[in-house]
C-alpha cells in the first residue's frame, strides 16, 4: 500500500485515493479540426513510461481534490506531488 502526500491534506494511505492516469494530457482545442490520428493520441496513447511518470490522483476520501504526482514506476516511490495548474517539479 502506498503512502501518498496530498498537497492539501498531507500524507494519507492509498485507499483514500483514486488513480487518474497520466497527467498533463490536453483535450484537442478544436475537436472539429482534429484528425483521427490526433484523436487516437488523445484518447488511447499513453507514455506508459518505465521511470518517472507524471500522473493524476484524486483524494476522493479526503478533500476530494485532484492533484498531480511524479512517481517512479520502477520503484513506486513518489518524487513529488503538486497542485493542478502547477508545473511538474524538475527531478
Amino acid at each position: 500500500m502506498l503512502l501518498i502526500e496530498c498537497p492539501y491534506c498531507g500524507e494519507r494511505p492509498e485507499p483514500e485515493f483514486v488513480y487518474g492516469g497520466q497527467a498533463h494530457i490536453a483535450r484537442p482545442a478544436q475537436p472539429g479540426a482534429t484528425s483521427p490520428d490526433e484523436w487516437t493520441q488523445f484518447l488511447y496513447l499513453r507514455s506508459n513510461v518505465r521511470g518517472v511518470h507524471a500522473e493524476r490522483w484524486r483524494h476522493s476520501h479526503g478533500c476530494g481534490r485532484f492533484f498531480n504526482a511524479l512517481r517512479d514506476t520502477t520503484t513506486d516511490r513518489f518524487l513529488a506531488t503538486y497542485r493542478v495548474g502547477e508545473r511538474a517539479p524538475s527531478t
Binding site: M1, L2, E14, P15, F17, V18, Y19, E55, T73
Partner: peptide, 13 residues
C-alpha cells in the same frame, strides 16, 4: 493495482 507500475509487486490491500 490502481496505478501503472513495472515493479512486479503491489499493495497488500
Amino acid at each position: 493495482d490502481a496505478y501503472t507500475s513495472y515493479t512486479q509487486r503491489g499493495g497488500l490491500h
